[in-house]
């Protein structure tokens, strides 16, 4: 079944979103966001795969041999960097929330404070 790798990406995404929806801890929610985001790596690499091909690095490979699509790999790198920085930023927000309201349970965060 040739669509299975793509479907795996969709499954990882939905699992991550499910975690975020039912989360009781903001740190856990940030982790779930990372899971949902990592589905895009799977999708990108699945789109770029070529049967029987190898990595697009020609250091020890004759030029012209079949390689997988390097464009999506570059996109996956961008994805990883943005995902990591986003996680760091969100975690620092969680630390601030914990300091200001004394809880990291999104259910307990009700009402705005000036």
């Amino acid at each position: 079944m040739t669509v299975l790798p793509f479907l795996a990406a969709g499954w990882i995404f939905l699992a991550g979103v499910y975690g975020m929806v039912t989360s009781h801890n903001l740190v856990h929610a940030v982790g779930c966001l990372s899971v949902a985001q990592s589905s895009t790596y799977v999708l990108l690499l699945a789109v770029g795969y070529r049967s029987g091909a190898t990595a697009p690095v020609f250091s020890d490979l004759p030029t012209g041999s079949p390689v997988v699509d390097p464009v999506v790999q570059a996109l996956a790198l961008t994805d990883v960097v943005v995902g990591a920085t986003l996680t760091a930023l969100l975690l620092s927000l969680v630390i601030q929330i914990r300091k200001r309201s004394g809880t990291v349970d999104p259910e307990a965060l009700t009402g705005l404070k000036g």
Partner: peptide, 9 residues
């Protein structure tokens, strides 16, 4: 999946 045609690539 695994198609041999990757125009951009």
């Amino acid at each position: 999946f695994g198609t041999a045609r990757h125009p951009y690539g």
